[in-house]
Amino acid sequence: MTGTLCLKAVGKDFTRGWEQVRALEDIDLEVARGSFVCVVGASGSGKSTLLSLIAGLSRPTTGEVLLDGVPVAGPGPDRGMVFQTGAVYPWRTVERNVAFGLELLPLSRGERAARVDHYLAATGLTGLRHALPRQLSGGQRQRVAIARALACEPEVLLLDEPFGALDVQTKEDMQLFIRRLWHECGTTVIMVTHDVEEAVFLGQRVITLASNPGRVAADVTVPLPGERDLTVKRDAAFLGVRAEIEDLVRLYHHQA
């Protein structure tokens, strides 16, 4: 199947001291092109490990990760990644951060600039293009990281707790922002979060991981319309799904 991300019986072991620790076990997952999938789970359930396997930053111990049927062999710009801390280059201005991936490609100066302009505008950063990261707020920094990843036109955008360090109001702004961006770009988004409300609000699907070892405990399709605004968070359907998933996360948290 083209345009699909596919995890087949993926497992991951770590060595901690003399011990072998199983972080993930037997993960089977298929993510259709253009969908928005959220992954939740207690800490230690291997959520971030899962993303890093998809990104190709680490290799699965067993099984394989396939993108468009091709095994993922390492990190690449077709799978953009945004970390919780943003990991923007502090010595580069906003526009040069966004340009980073494009500088590695054989593009003319004009084309690169045009693409940078486009993604700066799409993320509302045009006015801040000459600012350094230390002059930005946490939310703005995350926008830079997202714009930088999107500029490489990834098949899949991987978000690792991207709004975890933001205050509640900024977080809601960013949730609306990422949903709008997803509608505009049509990129597949896989987002790891510990915030179940956020997962249900953003995701078409919410995957709950169980801990020790990490495995898929539930895969819930969110019964909400595609167009969502913040009032959805008060809907009965929303609250129902949210409660159901929160109970699951709590259950596995206490078992861990």
């Binding site: 930053l57 710009p77 990991a87």
Partner: peptide
Amino acid sequence: IPGALVDVSYTLGAR
């Protein structure tokens, strides 16, 4: 150097 800065560079296509 923070590890995330190196990791994110690889995901942006850097060798």
